[in-house]
């Protein structure tokens, strides 16, 4: 009977991934059929390029220790949003003063728009994310050491 054949298939856990992947294919096709999707005009944290700035492509304005203007969801919840973006450490200030081509390094160095998002306005994401790393590594380390 077809029902018992289906149930035999799903009761074997080796087929589980195949089942899930099949479902993903179906939904992906559904998504393709529902294209084109609208792209909302007013995005959070939009990118803006300021050619010629030493901080390019991450120059979001604002002199150090002032508030840069960034679009966050709830400005009232993070009153100091924008300070991190505008801040330059002495090292990154030095780099910014002397070359035009180290924008990424300067912004990745403490301070900058991504630090703002990752640590400040969307900090909870990073808490969860680093916990995932912690847990996954815990599993790997436990399995690695078990019995040795």
């Amino acid at each position: 009977m077809i029902i018992s054949r289906i149930s035999r298939f799903i009761s074997n856990f080796d087929n589980l991934l195949a089942l899930f992947a099949g479902a993903c294919v179906v939904i992906a096709v559904l998504l393709i059929l529902s294209l084109p999707l609208p792209y909302a005009e007013n995005q959070l944290y939009p990118k803006s390029l300021n050619a010629g700035s030493p901080l390019n492509p991450y120059d979001r304005g604002g002199p150090p220790f002032t508030q840069a203007d960034i679009v966050v969801q709830y400005p009232e919840n993070s009153p100091y949003a924008g300070y991190v973006t505008a801040y330059l450490t002495p090292l990154s200030g030095f780099m910014a003063a002397h070359t035009l081509y180290l924008g990424t390094t300067i912004v990745a160095h403490p301070g900058g728009i991504l630090d703002e998002i990752l640590y400040n306005t969307r900090g909870l994401d990073t808490v969860v994310e680093s916990t995932i790393l912690f847990i996954a590594f815990g599993i790997a380390a436990f399995l690695f050491r078990k019995g040795s």
Binding site: K47, Y58, G103, T104, V107, A108
Partner: peptide, 9 residues
Amino acid sequence: SYNEALALL
């Protein structure tokens, strides 16, 4: 192409 340099790195 989207200038996402840090993500790229």
